[in-house]
């Protein structure tokens, strides 16, 4: 049964000089515990999809349902991870991690213990009293992951969370995130432009097309790859096959996107 459903979602960005159709008729659904990747060139509206799912942005047409209820009615269902950690530099790691509970006034000594355990689980013991500036990029992103997980979100939205990291750190974090999501049985939507990352981490890959953002095609990741660690997926023989298929799909798009109109503006004058 569908856990998260997007039904004919369309979104426009308006400005005083015109408008841009960022998304056109996006429909897909995600099952509980499933990991879906949105893959596409920059500017195809991938991040907009996440903002709409999270409720930060309101779509101009269409509906988003979480467990058959409109997304706006469910509180605290969403965990969001961004390209950078966006830890608050004036808060200690512990206070950063406990931001969600503090905002929702559910902060107890139990949550504090959970925070401590989660920090240890992601390999960050003994940093609770440190400030973000004294941590490396990878450590900070792991702290940001804990900040998201502590709220026990029903869905995790990952907006290119590994793109600002160096390659080695990125591979390690992919493994960690994938492991944690499996242990806690989380549903996740990952936005990325990295084909390898999409294959390594997800169960299903939705390839998007730009101007306006539409769904171009959907690839199911072979079952052998789904249960494997992201690092090992990259060595699997089937990995390269899927990679090539997706590459061809994107490559075709590339040639036809450049010939089409980039930005739409209105016919005011």
């Amino acid at each position: 049964m569908a856990f998260l459903t997007l039904d004919k979602v369309t979104h426009h960005y308006f400005s005083s000089t015109g408008y841009t159709k960022a998304l056109d008729n996006i429909s897909f659904s995600v099952k509980e515990g499933e990991f879906v990747a949105l893959l596409g060139p920059s500017g195809c509206g991938k991040s907009t999809v996440l903002s709409i799912i999270s409720g930060i942005m309101k779509q101009t047409a269409g509906n988003v349902f979480l467990e058959q209820k409109p997304i706006t009615e469910s509180k605290m269902a969403i965990g969001y991870m961004l390209q950078q950690d966006y830890l608050f530099p004036w808060k200690t790691i512990e206070n950063n991690v406990l931001l969600g509970p503090a905002i929702n006034r559910t902060l107890t000594s139990e949550t504090k213990e959970t925070a401590q355990e989660l920090l240890e689980e992601v390999g960050l013991p003994g940093v609770a009293d440190k400030y973000p500036s004294s941590l490396s990029g990878g450590m900070r992103q792991r702290a940001a992951l804990v900040r998201t997980l502590i709220n026990d979100p029903k869905i995790l939205l990952l907006d290119e969370p590994f793109s600002a990291l160096d390659y080695q750190t990125k591979l390690k974090l992919e493994d960690l995130v994938s492991k944690l999501l499996k242990t806690y049985q989380k549903t996740a939507v990952l936005v990325t432009h990295d084909i390898g990352e999409a294959i390594a981490m997800s169960d299903r890959i939705i390839v998007m097309d730009a101007n306006p953002g539409t769904i171009a095609s959907v690839f199911d990741v072979p079952i052998e790859l789904r249960d494997e660690q992201p690092f090992l997926v990259r060595r699997h023989p089937k990995y390269q096959l899927l990679f090539d298929r997706i590459w061809n799909e994107l490559d075709q798009k590339d040639t036809h996107v450049t010939s089409s109109q980039e930005v739409q503006t209105d016919e005011r004058e």
């Binding site: 605290m76 969001y80 608050f88 004036w90 931001l99």
Partner: peptide, 29 residues
Amino acid sequence: IDPNYEKVMRSFGATKWQLFKEAVFPAAL
């Protein structure tokens, strides 16, 4: 203030006042 801090706060369901107190005010200090 970086709008992404606002995004983080909003994803936790923060009210406007909480957003001000936790993110905007300290960032402008």
